[in-house]
């Protein structure tokens, strides 16, 4: 399968996306913000369809839409009652807007499928370059803010007392999540962002591995699941996203079972 150019590109793209989604997802699960990432991907969908309509590449629309929403979400008064409701509202309005944009697109059906369920085999060389650049930025940012982010996530009150700027970290982290979500949507589609963002990270967290190793392992697991999905879809003809989703779920269930067995 590696003799085909599109497969080689797909493997490289899956590597760079997985290596970001794993650790970003680790913090996302730790902080209990997975719903926010789900919402960001939907805003990204509206951005992507809007970009298509205006003749821009969808990745640009996806990234800027998600990034804008992520920053706004971080700036919005935190820990207010009904934040879930607000995110849910934004999510549905964004999806509705996306549907509206699709309505005016000529090749609506294929564009919609690619956005919603991912199209890893359709990644072009230019897009790959963009993905690599985004990944390098994300990993750099994560390495830079890793320590205070971990502290603030685990013990916000104490971190604030020790001079950690919670607000700045909140915003920076959600912006990071937005970028990772946009990348991930390229591979798994908007509807299945959870599979690469949340499943590997939740699996690793469930195993109770110390933070730094957990972050590294989440990255490895995300890459492994993405590659596994590619290989399986090559041999079975089922879509990559399906296999990635299934592998993610299996990994998580496996971690839960092994945890139960070892603690019993």
């Amino acid at each position: 399968m590696l003799e085909y150019d599109f497969m080689r590109i797909a493997f490289v793209a899956a590597f760079w996306v997985g290596i970001v989604c794993g650790p970003v997802g680790w913090f996302l699960v730790l902080r209990g913000q997975t719903f926010a990432s789900h919402a960001l991907s939907h805003v990204g969908f509206a951005g992507a369809t809007g970009a298509l309509l205006l003749g821009f590449p969808p990745l640009a629309g996806l990234t800027s839409g998600a990034l804008l929403a992520g920053i706004l979400m971080g700036v919005a008064p935190e820990r207010t009652a009904g934040r879930d409701v607000m995110i849910g509202l934004v999510l549905s309005v964004a999806l509705g807007l996306g549907a509206l944009c699709l309505h005016f697109l000529t090749h609506a059906a294929s564009a919609a499928t690619a956005l919603l369920f991912g199209d890893i085999l359709g990644v072009s060389r230019t897009m790959l370059l963009w993905l690599v650049a985004l990944s390098v930025c994300c990993l750099g940012a994560l390495a830079f803010m890793g320590r205070p982010l971990l502290f603030a996530s685990l013990q916000p009150e104490l971190a604030a007392a020790k001079g950690v700027r919670l607000r700045v970290l909140d915003i920076a982290f959600l912006a990071l999540v937005a970028l990772a979500t946009a990348e991930c949507a390229q591979i798994t589609g908007i509807l299945l962002v959870f599979t690469l963002m949340v499943a590997p990270a939740a699996t690793v967290l469930r195993l109770g591995i110390a933070p730094l190793y957990g972050l590294a392992l989440a990255a490895c697991l995300a890459v492994a699941e993405a590659w596994g999905g590619l290989v399986l879809s090559w041999y079975t003809d089922a879509p990559t996203s399906f296999w990635i989703a299934l592998l993610g779920a299996l990994g998580f269930v496996g971690a839960c079972v092994s945890r139960r067995v070892t603690s019993a």
């Binding site: 205070p148 971990l150 502290f151 730094l212």
Partner: peptide
């Protein structure tokens, strides 16, 4: 241990090492 260690130089930028 990880929780206690998270506070060590917790406001410094960098990896949680």
């Amino acid at each position: 241990w990880s929780m206690v260690a998270a506070a060590l130089k917790g406001r410094k930028w960098g990896l949680p090492w």
